[in-house]
Amino acid sequence: MAFTAVSLGGAACLRDISHRRSGVSDSAMFLAREARTLVEKNDRSFSLIGKRGEVLSELAELRDEHRQIGWDGAEAPPVSSIALNQAKELVLALPASIPNPELAVDPDDGAVSLEWYAGPSRIFSVSVGTTSRMPYAGIDGTYSWHGVAPLEGARVPDYILQGIKRIFA
């Protein structure tokens, strides 16, 4: 996800301009309008990072604990930086209404597992590895389903959103 990068000083300046109503010229009004848009985008970005901040910290912890081959006491491959980055992108692309996932590392391929738990037998999970395909699985009572979704960068695939929403419905 591309975030608007605004330095603290720049942000304060933009916020000031965005609140100005005294300018009467077209240019002044245009600048104020653009500044308001930037400020709103910036605020949304920081709000989203705040909600996902705990998950992003967990990603760093995963990297530290699973950086060696055989972290499982056998032959598990290490978690890769590609998998961690792709998992981060997916987390940041989640709509704000979606709860934070719980993270883990898969022992078979070092993928990052994102899991949502809505109660006993109501679980949805997706594994983010080094490819552009994400295996997912869900159980909802006695019903279960699985599939493979494409990794779509700044967009969360519908299959994933539907799976999460199903278990929390």
């Binding site: 594994s127 295996p135 699985h146 493979v148």
Partner: peptide
């Protein structure tokens, strides 16, 4: 299909973990 295989295995692992 390695990814579909993994998806099938995730269902099983999820049921057991549950």
């Amino acid at each position: 299909d390695a990814d579909l295989q993994k998806a099938k295995r995730k269902v099983i692992a999820t049921k057991i973990a549950d």
